[in-house]
Design a protein around this nucleic acid. Structure first.
Lengths: 338, 338
DNA sequence: CTGAAAGCGCTAACAA
DNA sequence: TTGTTAGCGCTTTCAG
């Protein structure tokens, strides 16, 4: 790999000049620019980004730490985050923690402030303590779509109104006449998706419908989790006419369980999820869900992070995503007659 | 962020000594180690990985360039690649090109040899010319699971026997008595998945079954692509009893199309895919497919890359993945009687 | 066992 | 407009 000084030597100038043409500060005479560019072409020179980062005190790289790249929510998030970052001239480094908080911690400690100018943390079970400890470094850290907002005002984060999402789901089922309803709640690294459940329950209560603990299943946030929960629910409560899942992935699993037992969706049982991942559109019947607006969340999160990097005094440091919206597809319908 | 010299000052030693205890060359007196470690703890020091990389001439970071993080194959690949890399003390930087070769090129040019010690390229439509141009840098580049192996021996790559995968699928359908078969072929960035189709066709030919062009659909490698292709196939060839898809994602789409039309799988039509992504297990009916062994491919690929980084003379430079294997699930069955 | 000093490749004042 | 000169934070001989 050719270096700056080789290029400089070949062009008969100094490294400073080459550096200047490289990032075209308009301070170089056209003729010299010409010479330098020829030398660059001739040597096949590429800047060493590490050296540049060290000199500039800025790597133009941000890290995205997430728990499980196989959960389709994250790839969808990554895709937009990467695009936004690229447009703002940052590299995005995706770090998968395999659901292990210790790996998340390790990434954070190693990367924040050294490899990356900032890091965006998604539901990785990293404690607020860890985050606070790291705040001493100047590298901004932002958490996205936290369920629990006990982070305080001093940690930048993006908040999604999960409670409202649950509420919307509840209102939809209520409007369709359902009264015997089950709920499948995911347990991610951040703990139960309790905000969504609370919202759901409160909506039902307004309609005079109860949601006893017996019809709630807490399971892992996966297809298999949703499947098993649905099986258990059906076994113990064959009379339910609708199931609320705190996310789409589990709803997909639940739909498999229903299909396996010959139960029709939505004629026999209605199914509603939260998030609106691509899969919700692709599955059959297509899933009615409460869209969290992945694109929005990702965009707001990464932009907040980059804003904070470029201007540490940036305000606000806590941003709210617009409320979720109901997307009606084919998995919900009027309560069955019997 | 504290630096080495601050730690050194606090411990009353020089940076060289701190550096030595940091990576425990056994050359430091226990008492000094003690002092230094206290200073490290007191300052909350973390090494600046950029500076280290510059000094060592090695970043311990590898990049994984892939076309579409939303295609579930890639997250599955990423997960194991990341794990292997981590165990070998490398960071994995995932670069999504959004299916745009120019972005892939840009990543390659910017990252290879500067930010990353090596890069693993997956089906991103980057030309062999580009790769060759980059070979001048010392940074190893390995391509994984190339369909076309016209890369020559001088570019390290991992090759999957796609032809065999197609053959296995063909033999399976043949054994079930199918003779009127359609095929859905994906067109990724690397061009049509023609190896798989060739293998499939040649297996059928051995069994005396033809696969005319009329029953082949070339579509994009997505759920929607598979769906549309299946619709078109059914419309023009209602007599077919089996469909071969060159990958699982399209098979999933095809299954939706069949479900939409009330066609039962496998009673009316058998469906077989290639790859064995998680979705193949999750969908209903579960998909019969030819498993490429994602875990194996990923492991071999990343290990080859790291081997090459650590020892540029490493041999072999081209590694073959063990042959694919048939995984029979519920989407294939005997040909229907009529 | 520890320190002094050079240098990785680049940027950024400041001079010339 | 260009060159000189310091670093950025770390590793790594080579002396002491």
């Amino acid at each position: 790999m050719a270096t700056l000084s080789e290029v400089a030597r070949l062009a008969g100038v100094t490294t400073a000049t080459v550096s200047n043409v490289l990032r075209n500060t308009q301070k170089v005479k056209p003729a010299t620019v010409q010479k330098v560019q020829e030398a660059i072409a001739a040597t096949g020179y590429r800047p060493n980004l590490m050296a540049r980062a060290l000199a500039e005190g800025k790597s133009s790289m941000v890290a995205l730490v997430l728990p499980d790249i196989n959960n389709p929510f994250y790839p969808e998030f990554v895709r937009v985050a990467e695009r936004v970052a690229r447009h703002r001239n940052y590299f995005l480094m995706v770090c998968n923690t395999d659901e292990r908080p210790d790996i998340g911690r390790a990434y954070l400690h190693q990367i924040a402030g050294t490899l990356a100018d900032g890091v965006l943390v998604l539901h990785t079970g990293i404690s607020a303590d860890d985050i606070n400890e790291l705040k001493t470094r100047r590298s901004p850290i932002v958490l996205a779509s936290e369920e629990k907002v006990d982070l305080g005002d001093n940690i930048p984060h993006v908040v999604v109104n999960f409670h409202r999402a649950g509420e919307i789901a509840g209102q939809h089922l209520l409007a369709l006449g359902h009264t015997r309803i089950g709920a499948i709640v995911g347990c991610g690294l951040e703990g139960m998706q309790v905000g969504r459940l609370d919202g759901f329950r409160s909506a039902l209560e307004v309609g005079g419908v109860a949601l006893p603990d017996a019809v709630i299943r807490n399971v892992s946030d996966t297809v298999a989790g949703g499947h098993d929960a649905a099986v258990s629910l059906l076994e113990q409560h064959p009379d339910i006419t609708a199931i609320f899942c705190t996310n789409d992935l589990m709803a997909y699993g639940a739909s498999q369980a229903l299909a396996d037992q010959g139960i029709r969706i939505p004629q026999d049982i209605s199914l509603i999820g939260v998030t609106d991942i691509q899969m919700a559109r692709d599955m059959r019947p297509a899933l009615t869900t409460v869209a969290l607006g992945i694109e929005q969340v990702a965009t707001l999160s990464i932009n907040l992070l980059l804003d904070l990097i470029e201007n540490p005094a940036h305000q606000p440091t806590i941003v709210r995503v617009p409320d979720p919206v109901l997307v009606v597809r084919s998995s919900t319908g009027p309560v069955r007659s019997i």
